[in-house]
């Protein structure tokens, strides 16, 4: 089957180009049209088939393990059956929550600076650096967390949060900037006309109008960093116990999935897939439910 494809695809392509070369103009146009449709449909299938298989695998293999014990018990040592991901769930909440505490205000402020306050070369420089930070490989954020925090205080959840917040800030800054920018200028002018200053205008007029878009951006950023593993491997490190203190090493859902996925024992692989399912569920909920909530409470603009 695969061999047929390996030989067949070049042969078909050759036939296609041969046909293009020998056919009259009108047929050639139709052939091209047909090929474009074919390529488009193939492209869609190439993207969707792995998605379907991946989700199928995660749901079918992961669902049987998703029970009360999984949600309320901590991890067992490798190779031992039983236990759950409670430690990882707690860890994810603490680490991502702290990252949001650092990242959201900074990101929103930076976004407001770019759209409402900053002008000229400095604002452009910030915008440029924000783009640089958007493309930052997550593993480098991990190195940052390591050199800044781990080297001085040891492995800790806080170091992981710090690394994740470096990934969050540029996303939130950009979303905020764009959201605020599309708020109609008349609204601001009306506010200024009533005697409000820039702060009052932004706080009471611009931000409420842009709230839904900003909240959506924040949710997206949280969902994105919630699935990050690379920045946590050598910052939060992982821990089989349930830890609440951000100054200690701590597990997180993606970290637990990573370590369990590397174990030679079937029980661990099953746990990893269930953890992956939980991660997918979490991200879907963030994406669908919160976006819907944000849209529902969005004040209507004229």
């Amino acid at each position: 089957m695969i061999r047929v494809a390996l030989y067949g695809i070049p042969v078909l392509l050759a036939i296609y180009f041969l046909a293009l070369a020998v056919s009259p103009w009108e047929t050639r146009r139709k052939l091209r049209q047909g090929f474009a449709y074919f390529a488009g449909i193939c492209g869609a299938l190439i993207a969707l088939i792995p998605l379907v298989f991946l989700l199928y695998h995660v749901i079918v293999q992961g669902l049987p393990g998703l029970n009360w014990e999984f949600l309320t018990h901590a991890q067992m040592p490798a190779g031992k059956a039983g236990g759950g991901y409670f430690n990882a769930i707690v860890g994810s909440l603490v680490i991502v929550g702290l990252a949001a505490v650092i990242g959201v205000p900074i990101g929103v402020l930076a976004g407001l600076y770019l759209s409402e306050v900053g002008k000229g070369w400095f604002a452009n420089a910030i915008r440029f650096l924000s783009e640089v930070l958007t493309g930052l490989p997550s593993i480098i954020a991990g190195i940052l967390g390591y050199t800044l925090i781990v080297m001085r205080f040891g492995f800790s959840a806080l170091a992981g949060s710090f690394a994740l917040s470096a990934l969050m800030i540029p996303i939130i800054a950009r979303v905020t900037e764009e959201a605020v920018r599309i708020v109609p200028q008349q609204l601001r002018e009306a506010s200024y006309g009533l005697g409000a200053g820039k702060f009052r205008t932004t706080w009471s007029v611009v931000l409420p109008a842009a709230r839904s878009a900003i909240v959506t951006g924040v949710i997206l950023a949280i969902a994105r960093v919630g699935g990050e593993t690379a920045p946590l491997i050598f910052t939060a490190l992982g821990n089989n116990g349930v830890v609440w203190s951000p100054m200690k090493s701590m597990s997180a859902l993606p970290l637990a999935v990573y370590t369990d996925a590397g174990q030679p024992y079937d029980v661990n692989i099953k746990m990893a897939v269930t953890g992956a399912l939980l991660l997918v569920l979490w991200i879907s909920i963030m994406n669908v439910v919160f976006r819907w909530l944000a849209a529902k409470f969005q004040p209507r603009l004229a």
């Binding site: 792995p50 990573y258 991660l279």
Partner: peptide, 16 residues
Amino acid sequence: LAAIPSIIFGLWGREE
């Protein structure tokens, strides 16, 4: 597809 974490691609890649 963009929202699925890297780690899950790795897990699926390795197992399936």
